[in-house]
Amino acid sequence: MQIKLVGEKHALVVYLDGEIDQHTVGDIKNAIDKEIRRTNAVNVIMDFRKISFMDSSGIGMIMGRYRTVSLLGGTVILYGCTDLIQRLITMAGLGRLIKITNNLDNALMLL
């Protein structure tokens, strides 16, 4: 996982890879939260292109980050999700809160 700051958009771009489950989700949460505090970013963009699997642990992780940044006036945007991951997000009602798009350029344009 890599995290980059896009300063003019106050956005962190989180390049995720591998599988998101209860075992891996803790490190992802900690890394993002640490970078939010360090950079004062208010938006989190997650790159899901290299995520091959996610279960409800990932839903909790996205909800938690949304809760954090929405209090700061920011938002969460995902791109590159598989159809199945998009269905999980919709099922959890997260589709009304976060934004989903197809690439980084479009994600940045939403901010």
Partner: peptide, 14 residues
């Protein structure tokens, strides 16, 4: 408190 989504059984059923 654990940031769990509470969606586990819903996903299994779906």
């Amino acid at each position: 408190d654990a940031e769990r989504s509470g969606m586990g059984f819903t996903i299994m059923e779906a």
